[in-house]
């Protein structure tokens, strides 16, 4: 069990690359196009290695690389560490590297994108903490490895938390209704605007690792039933892509309102009822 998680954490850039390639195909098919080959992200990877990197200043480039390693480290801590919260907090730290890098250059797109990235953190992270609490209430442990050994299905006890999490996935992965921090037609990618060549590669790959992070959380909702988890993440994957293709970008006010006044109460209600049922009744 533990070795599977360790392998996933170690190979997460490659797994994430495949997920991203598959996603690009699915998205293209939804738009009635053929789409790129499955290995397209890796072709991009090789291409970016052969470009001349233009550095704005060395601190900015270093923050890009730190973002990649911190994300990878956060995922490893999440999967193999003793406590799910450590993984979530390290994930916030990784985003902090990205944000500081975005603030350190003069480009207005980059600064604007970093500001919006902070809004993303504000909207999503409380929900992730509540999710961890909910999983703890059901499984009785903080360790992800133990959670994967839980024989029941936590999804049955945490339906509202799951719905809230699925609706928050677009904000974590920067997808369409909530892609305000990397609005591609508006602020040209936000904080990643000034990275090029090898340094953009780090950002590009870190995004793939986020996919593994998100789908690992989806897997947590099915406990030890891995086949069910696979089916569930496939459904979530299709749903998120359909949402991405069929909605337009919201403003950050709308995102914050949706996250704080709809998603958070939803998750909190579920946890409240569960705690009452567990400890009081």
């Amino acid at each position: 069990m533990a070795w599977i998680l360790k392998t996933i954490a170690f190979l997460s850039p490659i797994i994430g690359g495949f997920i991203y390639g598959f996603e690009r195909i699915v998205r293209a098919r939804m738009q009635n196009r053929q789409g790129p080959p499955l290995l397209q992200p890796f072709y991009d990877f090789v291409k970016l290695l052969q470009k001349r990197p233009i550095q704005v200043h060395s601190f900015h480039s270093m923050m890009g690389i730190a973002f990649f390693f911190a994300t990878w480290f956060a995922l490893s801590a999440f999967l193999c560490g003793p406590n799910i919260l450590v993984g979530l907090f390290l994930h916030i730290l990784a985003m902090a590297f990205f944000i500081i890098g975005g603030f350190s250059v003069l480009s207005p797109y980059s600064v604007m994108g970093s500001l919006r990235e902070i809004v993303h953190l504000m909207a999503v992270e409380p929900l992730l903490i509540l999710l961890a609490v909910g999983l703890f209430l059901v499984t009785g442990t903080w360790s992800v490895e133990e959670m994967f050994k839980y024989p029941g299905i936590p999804l049955v006890y945490l339906p509202l938390v799951f719905i809230a999490f699925v609706l928050a996935i677009p904000a974590i992965l920067k997808k369409s209704p909530f892609d305000i921090s990397e609005a591609h037609q508006e602020i040209i990618g936000g904080p990643e605007v000034d990275y090029s060549g090898f340094f953009y590669e780090a950002i590009y790959t870190a995004k793939w690792i986020e996919y593994v992070f998100v789908f690992a959380i989806v897997f947590l909702f099915t406990g030890a039933n891995w086949w069910l988890g696979l089916a569930l993440s496939l459904i979530v994957f299709i749903f998120v892509n359909a949402l991405d293709n069929s909605t337009c970008r919201t403003t950050f006010h709308q995102m914050i309102k949706f996250a704080w006044f709809f998603l958070l109460p939803l998750a909190a209600l579920n946890i409240f009822v569960l705690a009452l049922w567990r400890y009081v009744l």
């Binding site: 196009r33 053929q34 789409g35 790129p36």
Partner: peptide, 10 residues
């Protein structure tokens, strides 16, 4: 767009 779809060439 869907007819010529350059994304299939990456």
């Amino acid at each position: 767009g869907p007819k010529y779809d350059v994304e299939r060439f990456g």
